[in-house]
Write a protein that binds this DNA or RNA. Structure first.
Length: 512
RNA sequence: GGUCCGUUCGUCUAGGGGUUAGGACGUAUCCCUUUCACGGAUAAAACACGGGUUCGAUUCCCGUACGGACUACCA
């Protein structure tokens, strides 16, 4: 096949884009770019009742954040527009009618009450799966059972109707999924799905086939939840006479809950306290706020890398991939079949890797921004020093500020446990000497000079430095753990350091 | 219930008729070190079960179990 590869991501604007959807978009993007093709986005908004304002913007923003924006979309249309199904509404009826003419679809006038009654009747008769199919349609109100005159009259009178596909009674439907291989389904397990709804909108099934055909889609990469309806789609391609250009299907494994089983849901995010949406989202109807990876401090490259490994791997032992490297390494063949449990630890690990790979200067920007929000400023050089010292122990950019603020501000509290254990007369003696030496030191404090002065202070008191290090740290930073103390001292500066030691000497009580 | 899909360490996975079943996250221990972390090293940890086919099956086939998706005028 020498057609240009064209794939699409086709979300419904019904709320925040779920992480599974983001992964689907990513795989579509990677596949398109690897094949030198196009990645399009189509908004599937045929269900007007589920429309949620802002959802489309959310999708756009999420893809932009990850730098996987589509080549063609509602906001960047190509030659196959419109890219919103609601705006394509006038196009669908002719295709449905074409199927009616060919005898592959029919009008149905049943009310929802009548449909319910039918299902109840079948359930009562212990029919395993009550559905509108080759058998039951003979007992319903449709253009197959009603006299032609009446059908015409009903249509003419403006009575609501739907158009249903006429599924053949006995036919083996086969499709060759790129991930799962041959999948065969017997048509007698399929039902006469609605193609056109009574409101004049197509259902997903009709719209996605018509649009994929018109948009010259070559590969349909979507979630596994679509696999059961794929045979219907194959049948529709056949009825339309589009078999030659029918796209290849690839059904992606689902993203599962981290504990137990089942599809990953919003509930899991709340339960475990981690995001499953790319961006923060406030539901305009319920007012509920869900957190996003972006706002939690995940870096787009790290998140993307993490996401790409949820169901796919390059086949070697490499773990860190830029977007370009992912494109290069990607292949549908290497997508797994089994559902993937979501593990936030891995996401954090990726974030740490990407964070550490960043320059101190780049990280300093995060720190300065956070600080600004609190109403403070630091000079860039100092911010970079702090970032450099903190990045090895941070998961998120926000940790730089949260965990590193002691370098900018004196401690207000002192860790009780460390205090009880380490704060003793020896520490007090060393610190007193150290304070004096600092006061008489007239150069700028460097990490080397800070260390040398401290060593002298310990020696003069005949105390091994190691014995009091923890106490020194506690007195100057308030906690018992942190980056190299002498580097910290250099950042704090002599004057501030003297103040802090003075405060500790006056206020900390020896318990030990 | 029915249809379809799936099942390798706790998790993500590599592999594939004969392997010490490999890697990563996480966990544990050790080393480094002024602490914590980083880094390094080591360890514990898996082929769901039962039948076949075969000299040999984790790998192929068939069942079973378990899990999941779907089963709307939602996508």
């Amino acid at each position: 096949m020498d057609r240009e590869v064209r794939v699409r991501f086709a979300p419904s604007p019904t709320g925040a884009l779920h992480i599974g959807g983001v992964r689907t978009a990513l795989y579509n993007y990677l596949f398109a770019k690897k094949q030198g093709g196009k990645f399009l986005l189509r908004i599937e908004d045929t269900d007007q009742t589920r429309f949620v304002p802002g959802a489309e913007e959310y999708i756009k923003e999420a893809l932009e954040w990850l730098d996987i924006s589509p080549d063609e979309s509602p906001w960047n249309p190509g030659d196959c527009g419109p890219y919103r199904q609601s705006e394509r509404k006038p196009m669908y009826m002719q295709y449905a009618l074409d199927l009616v003419e060919k005898g592959h679809a029919y009008y149905a006038f049943d009310t929802s009450e009548e449909l319910d009654a039918m299902r109840e009747r079948l359930t009562a008769a212990r029919v395993v799966s009550p559905q509108y199919n080759a058998i039951t349609r003979t007992q319903m109100k449709n253009s197959l059972t009603l006299p032609e005159d009446e059908v015409k009259a009903r249509l003419a009178s403006g009575e609501p109707y739907v158009i249903r596909v006429k599924i053949p009674r006995k036919e083996e439907v086969r499709l060759n999924d790129m991930i799962r291989g041959w999948v065969m389904v017997h048509s007698n397990t399929l039902d006469d799905k609605v193609l056109m709804k009574s409101d004049g909108m197509p259902t997903y099934h009709l719209a996605n086939i018509v649009d994929d055909h018109l948009m010259e889609i070559t590969h349909v990469i979507r979630g596994e939840e679509w696999l059961p309806s794929a045979p219907l789609h194959v049948l529709l391609y056949k009825y339309f006479g589009w078999e030659d250009t029918m796209p290849q299907f690839a059904h992606l494994p689902l993203l599962l809950k981290p504990d137990g089983n089942g599809k990953l849901s919003k509930r899991d995010a709340e339960k475990h306290g981690f995001p499953i949406f790319p961006l923060d989202w406030k539901d305009p109807n319920s007012g509920d706020l869900v957190m996003g990876f972006r706002e939690q401090g995940y870096l787009p490259d790290a998140f993307l890398n993490f996401l790409s490994f949820l169901g796919w791997n390059p086949g070697d032992h490499r773990e860190i991939f830029s977007l370009d490297e992912l494109v290069e390494a990607f292949s549908v063949e290497r997508i797994g079949k089994a559902g993937t449990k979501f593990d936030i630890n891995k996401a954090k690990w990726y974030n740490e890797q990407y964070l550490r790979a960043k320059s101190d200067e780049e990280l300093a920007n995060y720190l300065m921004q956070d600080l600004e929000k609190e109403g403070f400023t630091v000079e860039a050089g100092k911010a970079a020093q702090i970032a450099g010292l903190m990045k090895e122990r941070a998961t998120f950019p926000g940790d730089l500020w949260k965990e590193g603020k002691f370098m900018l501000f004196p401690p207000t509290t002192f860790d009780e446990a460390v205090l009880a254990k380490r704060w003793n007369q020896e520490a007090v003696s060393v610190l007193a000497t150290y304070k004096e030496k600092l006061e008489n030191f007239h150069e700028e404090l460097t990490s080397e000079s800070a260390k040398s002065l401290l060593e002298q202070s310990a020696a003069e008191n005949d105390i091994k430095l190691g014995k009091v290090m923890q106490a020194v740290r506690l007195a100057t930073t308030g906690v018992g753990a942190g980056p190299d103390l002498m580097a910290v001292f250099a950042i704090i500066g002599k004057e501030e350091l003297i103040r802090r030691i003075g405060y500790a000497l006056e206020n900390l009580k020896i318990i030990a």
